[in-house]
Structures are given as structure tokens and as C-alpha cells.
Design a protein around this nucleic acid. Sequence first.
DNA 1: CTGTTAGCGCGTTCAG
DNA 2: CTGAACGCGCTAACAG
Lengths: 343, 343
Amino acid sequence: MVSIYDIARTANVSPSTVSRALQGNSRVGTATVARIIAIAHELGYVPSSAARNLSTQRSQTIALILSTISDPSVGSVVEGIERQAATAGYDIMLAMSRNDLGREQQIVASARQRRVDGIILIASQMAARYHQLFDDLHIPTVVISEQELQNNVLVVRTDDYSSAQLATNHLLDLGHIRIGYLGVHDRPASQKPRVAGYYDALTARGITPDPELVLIGNRADHLANGYAAAPAFAQRGATAVFCYNDSSAIGLLSACRQHNISVPDQMSVVGFDDIDMAQYSTPPLTTLRQPRLAIGEAALQTLVLRINNKTTENLTFPGELIIRKSTGPGPNKPEPKAMQQLG
Amino acid sequence: MVSIYDIARTANVSPSTVSRALQGNSRVGTATVARIIAIAHELGYVPSSAARNLSTQRSQTIALILSTISDPSVGSVVEGIERQAATAGYDIMLAMSRNDLGREQQIVASARQRRVDGIILIASQMAARYHQLFDDLHIPTVVISEQELQNNVLVVRTDDYSSAQLATNHLLDLGHIRIGYLGVHDRPASQKPRVAGYYDALTARGITPDPELVLIGNRADHLANGYAAAPAFAQRGATAVFCYNDSSAIGLLSACRQHNISVPDQMSVVGFDDIDMAQYSTPPLTTLRQPRLAIGEAALQTLVLRINNKTTENLTFPGELIIRKSTGPGPNKPEPKAMQQLG
DNA sequence: CTGTTAGCGCGTTCAG
DNA sequence: CTGAACGCGCTAACAG
């Protein structure tokens, strides 16, 4: 492997001159710089990041930890992160925790050994689970999802609470009373505020939330969860369901079709995320769009700021209600005229 | 940052003894090993991979390059890779090429500087585009997808050709004659053999493929491609369509519904991949399952073998036809009895 | 079983 | 503007 020593030798200069010339910044004779660069190119020189890392004590690497990549809603977030990381000159070390304790510890160990400059956590329970850990690590960290505040952990997220209210209010506006909530068990951090928003929206309209209409799936497969929940909702008289995410909603939609429950005539369904597939479901899914790409980009930018000791702050993005065809008037549909006036 | 020197000092041994003790393998007094480990733990020692990499000339890192992560079919593959990488002690450097020339070069540069021990390419045109590059890099590489054979590049993939034949034959068996193919423009490597399989299956039954029934979408959004293609297929008298992947198929399904084309009564649709969403589409999608998790795992294992100079070989996995509800009898449906007998 | 020595490749003072 | 010298943290070859 050719090093700066090799190129120094053939250029009749010292290694430090080569180092400087290659970095561009320092003051070196314009002529020698050109000559050095030429020789470096000619010799097929490729700088060693290990050596550089060792010397500079920075790895130009950020660890991206997520519970699973097989979730259609995280793709765009990762995309946003990767994009910004590339332009900021950081490499990404990808790790999947799978909610597996052993693997989680392994990941943290690996990140520490690699001396990663920063960490991004997506849809992982790790931040909550280890509570103090990320504070003690002294590695800048940003968590994407609602989170208990910690000292050294930044949060970038969608406003789950008000988004859930938006979704629920949409159903309420359509005249629904018996509105269910379909949840998951493996995303407590973001689910909590969504449930709260759902509850509060109901209560604000004078409706007492019925615990019977809150169903929490127990598997990691959200599609299957949604599919399995349909009969219970129908049986308990729900005319509308607000789902934790689009996957759950699409599973639910599929089951409705299977059980001949017409959507939206007999059952309105609202999802969350607006994944690519959402507008191609049957019927196209009304959902709460999260600005996933922007969140990913913001997460990385915030992290870089934090790494460079600039001032940073937690970021909250608003959700956007996307009305499609899976929601329709409920049994107590208000007068169209009134709706018009309010619009 | 505490180093082995620090722990050597407080343990009254030499740094190399510490190094050996921590590696476990070498012969060091059992007592001192215990003492050293204890002290290391106490001092909060975390080994530096940069230093180790520099010294050993191996990075324990593999580069995972893909065009985009926002494709529901790559998630499982990545999952398989990550799983095996973790157990084999490799970290993953994630990079997305986005079919962007500049980014592609940046990624290769970064991988070289990092001295990655191996490279995995998924659904990327890079292997084909640079042809000679990956050979010249002298870094073990495995490509997931059909590929022109290169010296130093291994291939792990689904048998696209015979899978396409399987899919097409299924449609043929159902009595369809005017069978279309819905393709994409950004996956030439895997599409080529699929189209070939489709053509050959048709020809083998004495049907002359009609070029009018082969539609190639021109956008990166496969769902949208599928959606846009429905009218053309209907208008040209296709009674069945074999799609490049499930995303295209689901887009097509959605458009059929929109245009009141009944599936499968008026139009049968077959996808490819068997993504999680496939069984929850309307109707549930008949598709060709790829063993994506297994492919990911095999890809990494093969790569590791190759890194360690063991013998390796290209791997081809068979696809599996999953019959669901999006396919049904065509206009020339054969006698049910005959079907039974053949089964 | 253990210590010494010498790099691995690069950045960075400190002198000129 | 340039060179010499040292350190980053760890492994490995060579003595004992």
C-alpha cells in the first residue's frame, strides 16, 4: 500500500510536506503541490482513514442504529440521513438491534471501539431502555422519535400528539363516534403520544373513550396485526379506526375486504406515515404524512452541529393529514352545509 | 482515552502482555490475564479499532452499496446481510448510490480509504457500469443480481430466468394467451433474464410474443409505473400481466380497481419478490417469491469466505411461485379435470 | 510465559 | 515555505 512516505521519496520532499500538500489548506509551494498531487495520482495513492482517524481522533463515521430496516416507513428517513451524511463527509455504520439485548450491547461496543463521532437512533427502544447509557457514552446522539429528555440526547421527530389529534378530528368531523385505535406493542415511545392525542381529541368533543375500542397488536408484523384486528373492531361497533401506522392500516383494509366490510361505507380507516404504498391501497389510504426525508436530513444536520459543538435544539415537524378514500361519513354525518362553512 | 499502555502501567506488565491477554488467544498466565481484564474493565478501557486496523491491515468492515433503501424488496436482503455480518464480526458501511455518477465515485473512494475488507452490491448498476473497476479494486466483491461474470466478482442471486418462466407458465396454464410484461428501466441486470424467461415460456407454447404487450416504465417509482400502465394493457387486449416486481404489480392492481377492471376476472396479475405487502393487496397478489433473507445471508457468508481465501462459488437460489388471488382463468381456460390430473 | 522493539500511515508541533 | 521528530493505539516478531 503506497503511503505518503513513498510519494515523499519520489518527490524529494518530506512526508510532512506531502501531508500538507494533500490537505490543500496549509502553505506549500504551488509548484510542489502540483507535483505532489501528480505523483500521488500516478502512484495510485489512497489515503488510509484508519491512520487519519488515529491521528486526528475523529472517525468521520456516524452509527445508524435501528430496530429493523424492513419497515417501509424508515426507508426515506435513512435516505435523508445518508444524503446529508455524504455531503457532510461522514460515513454511516449501519446496525440493526432487532430488539435483541445481546445485539444491542454488541452494537454499542462496536460503536465505541470505532470511535464513531455520533449516533442516530431510529424507532429503537434503546434510548428508553438504557436511559442513562447514551448520556454516559459522551457521544453526540440524536433520537428520531418521541423521547424522554436526556442531557446529551437530541430529539428530531414528528409531532405525534397533535398529528394524532388531526387524524382523530378528521374522523370526528365526518361524524364518527365509535372510533377505535389500533396500536402496536413495539413502539412505545411514539405510540404513547399518539394514543394521548386520540384520547384528548375524543374527550374534547365530549366523547368518553371506550377502552374496548383500543386494540394493541402483539406481534412485530404490523400488517398481520392490522389484519387480525378487523373482526374485533367490527364486532364492537367501531365505524372508524385510527391506526398506529400505514402497515397496520393496510392489514386492516385487507381484512375488511376479506370480511366484506366495506371501506369507507361501513368502516373508515386512517393510517400514519404516508408510506409510498398508501396511495395504492384499496381504497387509497387516508393517512397522516410524516416528512420522513426531511426528518432524516434534519437529524443528520443536527447531529453534525452537535459534533462541532454548535448550538443545537430538538426539532419537531408537523404531520399533515392526507385525505384519500379510506375515510367517509359516519353514522351521524353533519350537514354538508355546515362542513362547507367551516372549510 | 485509556490505552493498553495505561492498563499495562497499573498492572506492572508490558503493553504487549496486555494486548495478548485481551485477545485471549496467546499464552499468558491465567492469573495475570484475570488481573489485566479486571483492570481494563475498571479503567473503562475501550479498544480502538482504528489502531487495530492500522496494525492488522484489516478493517473488519464491509461496504454495502445499494441504489436506494426505499425499495421494499431490499429490506430483507439487508437484514440477512446485517445478521450474518454481526455474527462474523464485521461492521457495515452503508452507502446509497442513487444512480448518481458523482456519488458512486465518492462511495468507491470512501470504501478504498476505509480499506473495507469486502463489498456487497445490491440492485446497483455500478458493477455493470464500471465493468472493470471492481476487478481492479482487488477488494472481494459480491453482487446480488444477475451479472456479467467478472474475475473478482461473485454473484448471489435468484434464478430470474427460470422464475420468470414459472410465472409465465402459471398464466399460460390458466389459459391466458395475451400475456403482457410490465418492466422497469432502472434494473437492467435482473430484468433482462426475466424478460427472456417470459419470452421463452411464451414461445415454448407456440405463442409469438407481442412487442406491444411489453411495457417498460420510465420512472424510478415502480408503483407509479404500474399504475400508469393499466390502460395500455387493457386497451391492447392483455388478459394477464407479469410484472417486474410486486411494487409494479400493486400499482397496476390499484389502477385496475380505479378503471373498474376486475382482477382476476378481467385481468390476472403476477408480481415478483413477495414483499410483505403482497399478501395484503387487493386482491392478494400472486407472485414469485425470492428467498431474500437467505440471499442476504448467503451473500455475506460467501463474501467472508472469499475474504479468507477459501473456495467460493456463485450461488443461485430458485424462486417459488406463490399463488394467491390476483390470477385466475383466462379466456381459453382448459378443462378443470385436466388441471386436476396434472396437479 | 513475558518484555523489547519496530512498525502500521498520517497529522502536527517545533525548528529552521 | 519546508524538514525532523514525535504521538495516535495496537499488533507482531524477536528475544529471553
